[in-house]
Design a binder for these strands. Sequence first.
DNA 1: GTCTAACGTTAGCCACAACTGGCGGAAGAG
DNA 2: CTCTTCCGCCAGTTGTGGCTAACGTTAGAC
Lengths: 115, 115
Amino acid sequence: MTAAAREPDTDDVFRALADPRRRQILRLVAREELAAGEIAAAFDVTRTAVSQHLTVLRSADLLTERRDGTRRLYRANPDRIAALRTALDELWASSLDLGRRLVEAERDAGEGSTR
Amino acid sequence: MTAAAREPDTDDVFRALADPRRRQILRLVAREELAAGEIAAAFDVTRTAVSQHLTVLRSADLLTERRDGTRRLYRANPDRIAALRTALDELWASSLDLGRRLVEAERDAGEGSTR
DNA sequence: GTCTAACGTTAGCCACAACTGGCGGAAGAG
DNA sequence: CTCTTCCGCCAGTTGTGGCTAACGTTAGAC
């Protein structure tokens, strides 16, 4: 059975961050709001491509959008990064305390794990 | 060929973690070594597919491989996760701790922002 | 009203990533 | 030696993500 733990939130964030361009965009708007056009100007791909990246980032809730006339200002949402760090810890949840894990490794003889 | 001519950079790690299946694999071997076959048994894809996932994870240095006869035992490499957290911090370098960032946001008028 | 600027959206193309199936090599059992 | 198990590698197919180009929409200037 592959019901698999559903984690759309985490998955979206991971996938969004998997692209180098998107990470760069995120860096651009980490500290200041930038308009879509300004962001696009930082790359040599078309404005459309950047717009799609922005959509992906926004879907993952990594960006906040603010409209100012015809312009749309974007800014990174740090809360999401914090959430991602939590997700990383959860990924490692089975052995959160690393020190203990290493000790366990030394004497990995006894294990009562169910799978 | 020089040993380890390939140093897994941030991109590799992000891309490797972008796939839900790979994350699940990582969780499986977080605390105990598992053979490739055992890992494959946990999914309903073919053994080959899992083997390829393992290769990707190993390329990102997220796994360590140990051979025992015909079997190959895999285990997660926690150091890489730690490195990833560092990368996240760098991504967020301009506003590392949330508390301070929020305060900053409150008074972001102090910045050169003209709005 | 018209015109322009700044965006997002859609359709289609192309490259890559994930999958399946078949093959071959290495280690242990007989 | 043969036979089996365990596993990675290769070839081929399918699905998906990122790209461009053309179009639609909104807001402001005239």
